[in-house]
Simulated scan of single mutants.
Amino acid sequence: MWAFFHKLGSPRWFYEISGKWLPWLSLLALSCLILGAVWGLAFAPPDFKQGNSYRIIFIHVPAAAVSMACYMVMAFAAAIHLIWKMKLADVVMRSCAPIGAALTLIALFTGSIWGKPTWGTWWVWDARITSVLILFFLYLGVLALYEAFENAESASKASAVLSLVGCVNVPIIYWSVEWWYSLHQPATIKLTEESTIHPDMLYPLLVMLCGFYAFFVVALLLFSRSEILYRERKTKWVKALAAA
């Protein structure tokens, strides 16, 4: 286990092994996204209250869920970088920021589209929407800190600290509908209790969730590989790779 952990800290090893994972993960992501989208948008029944407008759930919910998971991955990488000074952890942390920002923006945008026919407005300052907007700004803050410092190590430390501090926002997003009055309904997919969503809607939603998670992993590997090549551009193995 420790040998694998030490190997994982090697940018070159990670670059080589991730190249073998990418085709299979890409196939999984593409298959799940196509299956889930067709199943949810074309074959799932309309909601008895919202009609067909609810179908945005098959994009909105996975994007929101994975945006929070992405932040936790970024924060975990930040902790590893601060404690063990692992270069690959810093690569992962930086790679998570643009992916998470994009997913959060999709969640906010699709939420507005869903909110208009459901609530009669594009935007309300309710607890969940506001906390998700803060999540978006946290991602932008991490990206900004990387560009604000000329010294790469100082930029990494500042970004890592912000990533860890921002972790407090993730449980606030999740529990906001329980803690405060919110237009959002409580979670319909539950692990410890029976889910309140109909199986005809639940199964395509679960497939889309798997597709979004697989897409996140693929995107993270691609961003990380690109960042590794940039940082290691002066090393012999990258020069040999470029020459080949």
Rank of each mutant, 00 (worst) to 15 (best):
109 F>A: 13
118 T>I: 04
106 I>Q: 07
64 A>D: 04
118 T>C: 03
70 C>E: 12
100 G>A: 09
112 S>P: 12
87 K>S: 11
116 K>G: 00
95 S>E: 04
89 A>V: 03
121 T>C: 04
118 T>E: 10
87 K>H: 12
80 I>A: 14
96 C>G: 04
92 V>N: 07
75 A>K: 04
113 I>K: 09
68 M>F: 11
70 C>I: 04
85 K>V: 02
100 G>D: 10
98 P>M: 02
103 L>T: 00
120 G>N: 08
97 A>W: 05
69 A>W: 10
103 L>K: 02
126 D>E: 15
122 W>C: 00
89 A>M: 02
103 L>S: 00
95 S>K: 01
70 C>G: 10
79 A>W: 13
124 V>W: 13
64 A>F: 00
64 A>P: 12
69 A>N: 09
102 A>D: 09
75 A>C: 14
82 L>F: 06
65 A>I: 10
91 V>P: 13
87 K>Y: 08
89 A>I: 02
100 G>I: 05
84 W>P: 12
113 I>L: 15
72 M>L: 14
109 F>R: 01
70 C>Q: 13
106 I>L: 11
68 M>G: 06
101 A>I: 11
107 A>R: 00
127 A>Y: 08
124 V>E: 15
105 L>N: 07
114 W>N: 02
117 P>W: 05
81 H>W: 14
122 W>H: 02
121 T>I: 12
80 I>K: 06
112 S>Y: 07
100 G>M: 11
122 W>D: 06
75 A>N: 04
77 A>Q: 08
127 A>H: 11
86 M>V: 13
81 H>G: 03
97 A>H: 08
118 T>G: 00
84 W>Y: 15
91 V>D: 15
64 A>Y: 00
107 A>C: 09
92 V>I: 15
66 V>G: 00
113 I>N: 05
90 D>H: 07
82 L>A: 06
91 V>L: 14
81 H>Q: 14
93 M>I: 01
93 M>S: 08
79 A>I: 13
124 V>Q: 15
109 F>D: 09
103 L>M: 10
89 A>T: 02
65 A>L: 12
117 P>Y: 08
126 D>Q: 07
